[in-house]
Design a protein around this nucleic acid. Sequence first.
DNA 1: ATTATCTATAGATCTATAGATAATGC
DNA 2: ATTATCTATAGATCTATAGATAATGC
Lengths: 206, 206
Amino acid sequence: MEENKNTNLEQGILEAAERLFLEKGFAMTSTTEIAKEAGCNQGLVHYYYRTKEKLFEEVFSKKAELFFSAFMNVENEELPFREKLRRVIEVHFDMLMKNPRLPFLLINEFTTNPGRVLSVKEKIKNLPESVLAKMEKELKEEIRCGRIREIELVDLMLMIISLNGGLFIAKPIMGAIMGMGEEEWERLAKRRRDENVRIILQAVEG
Amino acid sequence: MEENKNTNLEQGILEAAERLFLEKGFAMTSTTEIAKEAGCNQGLVHYYYRTKEKLFEEVFSKKAELFFSAFMNVENEELPFREKLRRVIEVHFDMLMKNPRLPFLLINEFTTNPGRVLSVKEKIKNLPESVLAKMEKELKEEIRCGRIREIELVDLMLMIISLNGGLFIAKPIMGAIMGMGEEEWERLAKRRRDENVRIILQAVEG
DNA sequence: ATTATCTATAGATCTATAGATAATGC
DNA sequence: ATTATCTATAGATCTATAGATAATGC
């Protein structure tokens, strides 16, 4: 309990920050607000994390890693290419369902402050290095054997991320413009999970 | 020249605001910055547009309309469904090529401030009302005749927007994570234009 | 003693407006 | 006279820190 109490607020601030950064992005979230959400005074936010930037980076790098985790996790499973591809899409989609604001956070911060991102790159170097290389190799092999059509890895990943991410990114837009409600969106999401798999599998076929 | 001089700064401020809002979004752009970019003092921004919000809305509603214009423009052309669909995708894509920051602006503002968006809805009501209904009717007819598979209009539009928009949205991310440069991105974009058409046409087939 | 928490505040913005001055249209 | 432009500033943040006080670990 003491140990708990010790890390209590430090952790609480981190979690409050996570919620708010995901909701509104870096620029529109103030440390005052984070403190209020965490139930402490504003000074404490800086006591534990020194600057808003440092606090943000702690949240952000975890989230960025999470976004790409689907690709890394499935890559280690032993499955035929087509099944592996299906799994990647599904795992990625399910992760987004649990973290629906994640695409927004990534887009917002990579777009408005690419500089802040450089430090994050270090933490997700696993992806670019080992995993991407392995995926590329597998993809090339499939193409060589004529089991799928000629396609670049970056094109494939972009398709997955665009189709999966688009659903979550467009949610507020569809809500505002077409007046789409939560229930209707849920039904749409349910359809899209299978459809995205289908579309991508179809798209890599000869 | 006088007339020009008259609207000169008013227009100049609007254009400066447009550039900056597209670059950094509403929250991260200050009226001081807009004034500097427009080459006048900060007071003038408020003289012409009263509040930052009003100035933003002027920019935003134009841009939101532009984003959906592809759907409206092509809808009026007389073409068989499949050709019309191809045209929509291509016209939408080409518009994004000319306005690469547009998807970011829409996402950012619809997500962080859905309230501000309500006033915009008025201005793009053309889409929801006449055009969407017409598209829906055509789509239903194609399905009824068995020329394409069963699909909802919203699914189709989401696919188009996700695939086309994703390329532009992911640009800074790919730049930061994979170190993708401008030239490489251009080549990718060239491929994606045709691929997106192909994928979507394939996806609506039986 | 050390660490956690709070209060108070300096210094940097930033938005919006008031009031002065210059330019333009009758 | 009216409209455009500038300067100056009030008032509201917001971040980061300093210094006081309370809690905890020896």
